[in-house]
Design a binder for these strands. Structure first.
Lengths: 227, 227
DNA sequence: GCGTACACCGTACGACGTACGCTGTACTAT
DNA sequence: ATAGTACAGCGTACGTCGTACGGTGTACGC
């Protein structure tokens, strides 16, 4: 059967690229639960089994999606203060992961890094090494910074509100009753304060990142002075 | 039908407690994929549908499991230097999460904190507040420390080896071919070095934690001096 | 004109979560 | 004693999932 190449829509037949892209779109818009081979096929005007010409299995599809996510993250630039460079880079990583929240748990259970994932890690490692960190310290820093991003996004996508208004709306109905002050005095104190002052995901992220970057800088300078 | 109370095995009929415990055992031993209502029922000598008398849905079952995991984490003690207390506490958290790796992605997609989860967060918040952190700074510290633990465990359970021997074994077959030095010079440099020196998950965790704790202590002292 | 390769699909199998309605037992009110 | 009610547990069935398998038609080399 010949491919229907009539429409103005992007229908250049199937391709691995198109399959992965559409899978990402489905996951972004309707969540990971909505991503089934049948639904993906339907979106692509194809049968479920046709997809298996481009991905070996659903697992491999997920691997590919994760790699596409890595490819979206800005790589560290080559010049500039390493802290500034990493700040920009990690902000981009957070951005991308928040935009594709399904990717975080996926990265966790996935062992096979794709080319984009490898290139990403290579670039970050390179940035730290060029800044003067030793190999061991680079490994430490790499771990710590990645932890912050992963952990932060994990927490951000978890919270059931996106904006300060959402938060204020939910507070009365859900949070305050849950956090009875007599049972959870400290939590409820914190909740009230944050509620009053507004809550900004980005500010929270930047603050933590700053603490870590400055601490690492101190270690870098100290070890450099010892050379 | 009367319950068969003959055997020496722990068979006190069904109960929410028993259902949750057995679900955890299944997930621990055979992974999250193996946790289905049918299999869980079989392990409990019951039909799948009987479980629905103790959990409203599989989602609620997962909520309960997550809360049991929180309950396993040691709470911070009341006295001692806050850094030492938190170090112990977070080490316990890492320990528990590595023992139940399925819990990490679960915590991510779960909005409803159970009593143990709330109590855990309350205790950590209390510890930081009593150490002298402001409400805002406590929130920051809480976020940062949690991120480290989550992110760290995310990375640890990801790595396909547990011990240094495992790593050495896999290295030749998998890592070194993957990390071609001409394409990924920095990564392969790091891999060789870490391989030669051995790799210790605990040391890596402790190092990063120390960096963060010391940085937070500096902030605490500085703000205390301003009072 | 024929053979082969390939893109694609329909069907089917065994798993899954769970809605529904049926059992048999235990307890309470009369 | 009897009837009524509540409840623990189960069997069956529906619609979903991933995917193995065996088609079917078109394109192209000989």
């Amino acid at each position: 059967m010949i491919e229907d190449v009539g429409g103005a829509e992007p229908l250049p037949g199937l391709s691995r690229e198109r399959v992965l892209r559409e899978a990402m779109r489905l996951a972004d818009e309707h969540g990971m639960d909505a991503l089934s081979m049948r639904k993906l096929g339907r979106v692509l005007d194809a049968g479920a089994m046709s997809l298996y010409h481009y991905v070996a299995s659903k697992e491999e599809l997920l691997d590919g999606m994760v790699d596409l996510v890595f490819a979206e993250i800005e790589l560290p630039t080559r010049e500039g203060d390493w802290r500034e460079v990493m700040r920009r880079q990690l902000a981009s990583a957070r951005d991308v992961l928040v935009r594709h929240p399904w990717a975080v748990p996926l990265m966790e259970s996935r062992t096979n890094a794709g080319p984009a994932g490898l290139q990403y890690r290579e670039a970050v490692t390179a940035c730290l090494r060029r800044a003067g960190f030793s190999i061991e310290m680079t490994a430490h820093a790499n771990w710590l910074l990645s932890s912050c991003v992963y952990g932060y996004v994990l927490q951000e996508v978890n919270l059931p509100f996106d904006t300060a208004e959402d938060l204020a709306e939910m507070a009365d109905e859900v949070y305050l009753p849950l956090l009875a002050p007599d049972r959870y005095p400290y939590l409820s104190e914190t909740a009230s304060t944050l509620l009053a002052g507004g809550y900004d995901h980005t500010a929270e992220f930047d603050f933590g990142l700053d603490v870590v970057l400055e601490a690492l800088e101190r270690l870098r300078v100290r070890s450099a002075g010892r050379d």
